[in-house]
Nucleic acid binder design. Structure first.
Length: 857
DNA sequence: GGTTAGGATTCG
């Protein structure tokens, strides 16, 4: 049975998610003009002011039912303003009148009608009864809203006056549940300091208020005939309200964790960093001699509930540490996933209230925390990376005193030749047949130092998540590069090994996949086993199969001109330019080796090339332009709304943003173009995440203008658009209004550039390929916006994945450490052209209409 | 209830 009273409402998902979505920039007062006026109208008109007191008193009298339990006030039950109630067997003996509706914190705002509403919360603080200057008795209590525990603001001050204050002071205790009806609402003058709700509630008999008190459950109530039961047993502290030296209960979303590891003391240790909707962080250091008593966290984003965690200050920050009786529950953090607690102790409480909190936290996390991408698979590994791998243990072996070998698989095949750690067969634990069958799918992971002890304890067949494996590209003696997997010593970045239970959803998915692979793979194995039986080393097989693929198929293909036949390089070198050729060659070398150096900006008008400016120079230009004050006469024009505010930092900078309207209306942020004056780089970047287009500007006497063209004239998403200084002749910003007036302004960069008189520069990869085919060698330039690498040059600067893809592509076209014979073939289309100046004549070559084959990366 | 660790990669 779930003991609960009074009724707690379920959160409404639609509202919840809308609430959880934050505005990246809080509207400063000026911004809310229109909205505020509308709000004002609603307040004065539709919603009306407070209703006449008489009527409200009536409703409260009706609300005040008979008090069955309170001998102190049984004379005039109907008019009883303060009632002590209790619940019997989970149900209230007295119900609130049906016309009263619960109001949550969020709707306790000026301008709303609270006549038939009540607010309910748990007493978290009760001040002593005092007398005010005019002799009126006064009591202040603080109620916490159980429906909004994970909101940043979840408590409110209640001010009680007169006899009601005296009555309440006698009864109310911390932990009681209190219902306040017939209250007055006013701005809280202390909200800024106490961090509570912006309004407080006032209650008094004169105002016709009523207060119902449900006492906190008493533990030694066995002598009472009726069992007293109140829903909340635990109070959870938001992370921004933690105090040194306290022991608290809390909820949090895992932002970082180290899976339990053997400490240098007697216990296992796990370090967990949490965040919650207060946006505060808390790093907890948890110890326990029993692995199972530590939180069962499997991934960042999991949600935990900690009970009895001790809060201490360490290095100026709050820190959580295990205290006596610490216990934890861990939950999957994904919206919609089953809410199944992973408990660190056998007995724990988990009821509807907890369920609701988990759901709220999930929604908050989904829209407020960055979501990690899909989990890494062996098929997706690249050299020089750290990644987490979910896998199954197939074999293990002690290598030496400080390292231990784990042979694991995840059903996918690593695209590179992988390192095989030499160990004697007799030292290798695991099913010999299985190890042989899966030898092309397993990888060797060498774990070091502190991880050895845990690795030893693993069982063959265990499902593991190995955190922060390092892939290292290395050349073995055979002059062949391969990839190595290391789990280095230490616990930085959560490096470690966790055993996942078979009930884990990721494990279930992996198991299904492994079974399907196993079936098809073992069938293949049978058919090729006779061919392979002569081989003495698995390495050779791996390597040869790779080389075969490289050698058979060209790794680049033509996108046109397939009817051309190949020309030898020697022939091309001996011919006059200009001409076009199809060639088949190997990439012996390329420049620049540092791929980021290949990215340039190109002007198609004057054909100039320039480096992409770095963030520092943009920051400098922004700083410089911030010296020009925004001209108020240019604010709030016919086609944009302007907003100015002062930053909270030391410099107190003024930032002005002009939001361009469309059809007299502001569009959704994701469709909106805005112009910013006085912002710093971080602010500009932040705005680009939320709004479609950001244009940094500064004021002149009669219009806004673009900044120096060394700065981007436009930012869209992750892309900064630059203009050519030579070819652009900037036009007035007001020309943008013509786009704003279009039926569906799409804010295309090219269109924006055109109306602003900007000749846009294009991002391009420029590389020099040294190609060989056995008859000769020639240098050919690659000039590629997107086609060759199938990577938009404009996006690579801010996209790690694309950078890695490009590096992988080059590693594939020109594998480091590989002999010429082992290089793959490239099919390319090249053209020769003449470059003459006064003294010299040279022939150059350029690759075109060629692309990397889609199936080789 | 004392100790451990107190986030912040890469030797092998």
């Amino acid at each position: 049975m779930t003991p609960r009273f009074p009724r707690l409402r379920l959160c409404r998902p639609a509202e919840g998610s809308a609430r959880a979505r934050p505005a990246p920039w809080r509207s400063p007062p000026e911004a809310g003009g229109r909205r505020r006026r509308a709000h004002e109208r609603a307040r004065l008109g539709m919603r009306g002011g407070p209703r006449p007191r008489k009527r409200r008193r009536k409703s409260v009298e009706a609300a005040a039912g008979p008090c069955v339990l309170c001998p102190r006030r049984e004379t005039d039950k109907a008019a009883m303003p303060v009632q002590l109630l209790r619940t019997v067997k989970g149900e209230s003996e007295t119900s609130l009148p049906s016309h009263l509706q619960q109001e949550d914190l969020e709707h306790l705002q000026e301008g709303f009608d609270h006549t038939n509403k009540y607010f309910q919360g748990i007493v978290v603080l009760s001040h002593p009864l005092v007398k005010l200057g005019d002799g009126t008795d006064f009591l202040k209590i603080v109620l916490q809203d159980l429906d909004n525990l994970c909101s940043r603001i979840n408590s409110i001050n209640i001010l009680i006056y007169g006899k009601m204050a005296v009555d309440c002071a006698k009864i109310i205790q911390s932990g009681d549940t209190v219902v306040v009806a017939g209250f007055k609402l006013a701005k809280s003058p202390t909200a800024a300091e106490d961090g509570r709700h912006c309004c407080h509630l006032e209650a008094s008999e004169e105002d016709g208020s009523a207060i119902y008190i449900y006492p906190k459950q008493k533990k030694n109530a066995a002598s009472e005939t009726a069992s007293v039961s109140v829903a909340p047993k635990y109070v959870y502290t938001p992370l921004n309200h933690l105090k040194d030296g306290t022991i608290v209960n809390l909820y949090g979303i895992v932002k970082f964790f180290k899976p339990p590891y053997v400490s240098k003391g007697t216990d296992y240790c796990s370090v967990v960093t949490l965040v919650d909707p207060s946006n505060e962080k808390l790093t907890c250091t948890l110890f326990n001699g029993n692995l199972d008593s530590l939180p069962k966290i499997y991934k960042v984003g999991d949600i935990v509930r900690f009970h009895r965690i001790k809060i201490r200050e360490y290095n100026g920050q709050m820190q959580g540490i295990t205290s006596v009786g610490f216990s934890s529950l861990t939950f999957d953090g994904n919206v919609g996933a089953p809410v199944v607690p992973r408990a660190s102790s056998k007995a724990y409480t988990f009821m509807d209230e907890e369920l609701k909190i988990i759901e709220q936290l999930r929604v908050w996390a989904a829209s407020n925390l960055s979501i990690s991408g899909p989990a890494a698979k062996l098929s997706g590994v690249q050299p020089m990376l750290f990644f987490d791998l979910t896998c199954q243990l197939v074999g293990k072996a002690q290598v030496d005193g400080s390292s231990f070998l784990l042979k694991v698989w995840d059903g996918t095949k690593c695209p590179y030749p992988t390192w095989k750690v030499p160990v004697e067969a007799k030292d290798l634990e695991g099913d010999k047949v299985l190890l042989q069958q899966l030898r092309n799918l397993t990888v060797d992971i060498l774990v070091y130092d502190n991880h050895v002890q845990l690795a030893k304890s693993l069982k063959i067949g265990n499902f593991l998540r190995i955190y922060s494996i390092h892939t290292k590209q290395a050349s073995a003696a055979a002059d062949v590069s391969h990839i190595e997997f290391h789990l280095h010593g230490g616990t930085c970045y959560g490096r470690g090994i966790g055993v996942l239970p078979e009930s884990n959803p990721d494990v279930k998915e992996l198991k299904d996949f492994l079974e399907s692979v196993h079936l098809s793979d073992s069938q293949n194995m049978e058919s090729v086993s006779s061919v392979e039986s002569d081989s003495t080393s698995n390495d050779t097989i791996d390597l040869e199969s790779h080389l075969q693929i490289y050698q058979q198929l060209p790794v680049t293909v033509l996108t046109d001109h397939q009817h051309f036949s190949n020309t030898e390089l020697k022939t091309i070198l001996n011919s006059t330019a200009p001409q076009q050729y199809r060639i088949r060659a190997k990439l012996k070398n390329y420049k620049p080796q540092e791929l980021y150096q290949s990215l340039k900006l190109h002007c198609s008008n004057c054909n100039s090339l320039q480096e992409v400016p770095d963030g520092d120079s943009f920051e400098f230009i922004l700083q410089d332009s911030a010296l020009t004050a925004s001209n108020p006469e240019l604010h709030n024009t016919s086609w944009y709304d302007s907003v100015t505010w002062t930053t909270q930092d030391q410099n107190q900078r003024k930032i002005t943003i002009h939001f361009v309207r469309h059809d007299e209306m502001l569009q959704h942020p994701e469709d909106t173009l805005l112009m910013i004056e006085g912002g710093k780089l971080k602010e500009v970047r932040k705005l680009t995440k939320r709004f479609k287009c950001v244009i940094p500007v500064r004021s002149t006497e009669d219009d806004l203008e673009l900044l120096d063209l060394s700065a981007p004239f436009l930012l869209q998403g992750n892309i900064s658009y630059y203009g050519c200084k030579q070819c652009s002749s900037p036009k007035p910003i007001k020309n943008l209004s013509s786009i704003a007036a279009e039926q569906q302004p799409s804010w295309e960069p090219s269109e924006i550039a055109q109306v602003l008189g900007i000749k846009p520069l294009q991002y391009v990869f420029i590389m020099k390929f040294t190609l060989v085919d056995g008859t000769g060698a020639l240098n050919a330039y690659l000039f590629d916006y997107e086609k060759f690498f199938q990577i938009p040059a404009s996006e690579i600067l801010t996209n790690n994945f694309l950078q890695q893809k490009m590096q992988m592509t080059m590693n594939m076209l020109c594998p480091p450490g590989r002999k010429l014979d082992d290089l793959p073939w490239l099919d390319c289309f090249i053209k020769s052209y003449n470059v003459r100046d006064t003294t010299e004549h040279k022939v150059y070559y350029q690759i075109f209409d060629t692309t990397v084959a889609g199936d080789v990366i």
